[in-house]
């Protein structure tokens, strides 16, 4: 129990960071209704760009902005494959993801990882800050949970504004009904590209935050990102879908979903002596469970209803 309590703030911080990635995924998966698999690559791209910039002595803010921009470029590539070349979205994303593996290595100087020194470099968030704040070595507002929560809120506010504009509404229409959108003069291909760029920009931003938080970027850091993102979206919807109707709140639910996901994972690690190599298997199972719940809920209530009726008849 003690180990779980100790690890709790870390799990929440990680959940918040991955939550920003999941919000990006929400744009493609829910708003554009595209399955974009670029994220496994672009998350690492964000981490690599962010880490290299900081290691090169640049400000962490500039590093994050560059990660955002390069991430948007990866979305542009997938968008180009999908719209201009006519490749199905899922395959276009896989192609970009595959190509990004080499690009990410190249960004990190052909090394598989890039370390950051918490003492030598100025960072916005770090695992170290958790204990620093606790000890009083740092002011409370540098607590990772507060910093990343602030990032999340700003991201949600900007997206809330954007999807209420003429352009944003036309992107929502593109995902909701492409035929209708084109009949209303909306360039659906352009909108898909814009959506993919925003989404992967956010994914890369999240990746650069994680690189700072864990003090390194690694070629494998984005592996399974799509699963974590989907988990966050689905958990958020299962838990908060009934009460969060507003678009901004729905995005917040995605972030909460990611936090819940990390708390569950942390609980599994803390309460069992499971080998951490089984983590991916556990992740997959957790997502499968949350995907099953909404489907079985209907069957279950139907079953209860039926058995109650049968009893009444007897």
């Amino acid at each position: 129990m003690q180990s779980f309590i100790n690890a709790f703030p870390g799990a929440v911080s990680q959940g918040l960071i991955w939550g920003i990635m999941a919000i990006g995924l929400y744009i493609t998966y829910k708003i554009l209704e595209l399955s974009d698999l670029t994220v496994d690559g672009s998350f690492c791209t964000g981490g690599a760009v962010g880490a290299m910039m900081i290691a090169g002595g640049h400000s962490p803010w500039l590093a994050i902005l560059c990660a955002l921009a390069v991430g948007a470029l990866t979305g542009l590539v997938t968008g180009f494959f999908h719209t201009a070349c006519g490749i199905p979205a899922i395959l276009a994303g896989i192609l970009t993801q595959l190509g990004l593996w080499s690009v990410n290595l190249a960004i990190m100087g052909m090394k598989a990882n890039q370390a950051l020194n918490v003492n030598a470099h100025k960072l916005l968030v770090s695992l170290r800050f958790l204990s620093d704040v606790k000890k009083g070595a740092r002011p409370f507002y540098q607590h990772p949970i507060l910093v990343i929560a602030a990032f999340t809120i700003v991201v949600i506010m900007i997206l809330y504004w954007f999807f209420g504009t003429e352009l944003g509404a036309s992107i929502r229409a593109t995902g909701a009904n492409g035929n209708m959108a084109r009949a209303q003069g909306i360039n659906t291909n352009r909108n898909k590209v814009i959506g993919l760029m925003i989404a992967n920009g956010l994914v890369a931003l999240s990746g650069s935050l994680l690189a700072q938080y864990q003090s390194f970027a690694d070629i494998n850091m984005g592996r399974g990102a799509i699963v974590i993102g989907l988990a966050a979206i689905i958990i958020g919807d299962v838990v908060f879908g009934k009460i969060f109707r507003n678009f901004g709140l729905k995005l917040l639910a995605v972030s909460f979903g990611a936090i819940i996901y990390y708390i569950v994972i942390q609980a599994v690690i803390s309460f069992s002596d499971i080998d951490s190599n089984y983590l991916k298997l556990i992740s997959a199972l957790i997502v499968a469970i949350f995907l099953t719940v909404p489907n079985w809920k209907g069957k279950f209530t139907h079953f209860i209803h039926k058995s109650a009726k049968a009893k009444g008849g007897a």
Binding site: F162, M180, A181
Partner: peptide, 29 residues
Amino acid sequence: MMGTAATMQIEENMALAARRGKPRTLRSG
């Protein structure tokens, strides 16, 4: 089902249609 966006509000659908043939800007939708 084809002429309207089911997951969007009535007024949002109308606002999209009212801008047919015009550039979609960052002004309020």
